[in-house]
């Protein structure tokens, strides 16, 4: 859109002849022997620069706005609930004034780690296959298919977890052991959702390992498996670690699947077969109901959102630092 506007403006300027400056000719002899190095005014240039800056500023301003809203609303919350209670309390019962984030946080951790336990090994395996084994034609068919996985609406994943994966788990492990809503099912399906992200990031990391390292390994009598697993994967470690952390950050923030399949009610449990509510799931459920502004319930959501925001921000910064620190510089 933005580039289209720029394009139209450039066309307009060209027609109107304002892109060329001055009316004297192009070649020196047409300029009657004058050679000018005077700074030419370029209004279009400045206009476009301002427009592009504006585009970049929008996203930064939005982020800043979110931080301000989260900060002010949480400040109101933390006036009445101490930070210590918020982080150490083991119960989240707004109706009786108990605001301990542990049940929500642990549920988020359980679903996210389950998701990563699925997504990282599978994603890395897919990436190794695509980067090292697949023939170009196979790769070109498989990659878009994987990207489709990332394009499925998450609500569809949520229902898939609830209506397919959960019944399967209940059949496998026993009706009495697995609750209708459970974090395992949500986590497993979330792993499939994150798989394309992990595999495509890992594949980029593996492909950017210079071919000379592959040659070196093959020339020493290494098999394809030895080369991939023992040379290429370690050399791409920083990219793979970054993929893991970004995937985790995506899992922490993922909402629809956990809201539908993990459970609706905070409960402090490490058992993935029982229902529990994640931070995101809780926000969705509470904000969907009739909630009066200015109530503690309402403000508590911002406190949770702030925790979410800080955790994902922390994970993203961590992934950047890992890439920076462990990146091998190849000549």
């Amino acid at each position: 859109m933005a580039s289209f506007i720029v394009y139209c403006y450039a066309r307009f300027c060209k027609k109107a002849g304002t892109m060329k400056h001055g009316t004297i000719g192009f070649y020196p002899e047409e300029r009657l022997g004058r050679l000018s190095f005077r700074r030419a005014p370029r209004p279009t240039e400045r206009l476009i620069q301002a427009f592009l800056f504006f585009c970049a500023a929008v996203s930064i301003l939005t982020t800043a706005g979110i931080i301000v809203v989260l900060g002010t609303e949480s400040a109101g919350f933390f006036k009445e609930v101490s930070i210590l209670e918020f982080f150490t309390g083991k119960e989240w019962q707004p109706s009786i004034g108990k605001f301990g984030i542990a049940p929500l946080f642990v549920a988020t951790l359980t679903t996210s780690l389950t998701a990563m336990a699925v997504a990282l090994p599978l994603g890395l395996a897919v990436a190794i296959y695509l980067a090292e084994y697949a023939r170009p034609r196979v790769r070109e068919t498989l990659k878009p298919v994987l990207e489709v996985l990332a394009g499925v609406p998450t609500v569809a994943y949520g229902y898939f977890a609830l209506t397919v994966v959960t019944p399967f788990l209940r059949g496998l492990l026993g009706q009495e052991n697995v609750e209708v809503y459970n974090t395992l099912s949500a986590g497993l399906v979330m792993g499939v959702l994150i798989l394309p992200l992990i595999s495509s990031m890992c594949e980029d990391a593996l492909s950017s390992v210079p071919g000379s390292l592959r040659e070196a390994a093959y020339a020493m009598g290494a098999t394809k498996l030895e080369t991939s697993v023992k040379i290429i994967v370690p050399a791409a470690f920083s990219g793979i670690a970054a993929a893991f952390i970004l995937g985790l950050s995506r899992a922490v923030g993922e909402t629809m699947i956990v809201a539908l399949a993990a459970g609706a009610g905070p409960r402090l449990t490490l058992n993935p077969l029982r229902s529990a509510e994640t931070m995101t799931g809780h926000i969705v459920r509470i904000s969907g109901g009739d909630l009066s502004y200015d109530s503690m319930d309402y403000r508590s959501l911002f406190a949770i959102a702030l925790v979410l925001f800080v955790s994902t921000l922390f994970l993203n910064i961590l992934s950047r630092n890992i890439v920076k620190k462990y990146r091998e510089v190849y000549e």
Binding site: S212, L213, A216, A219, P234, E328
Partner: peptide
């Protein structure tokens, strides 16, 4: 090879 290519 032409360029040194030690493993990481």
């Amino acid at each position: 090879f032409q360029k040194p290519n030690p493993f990481s």
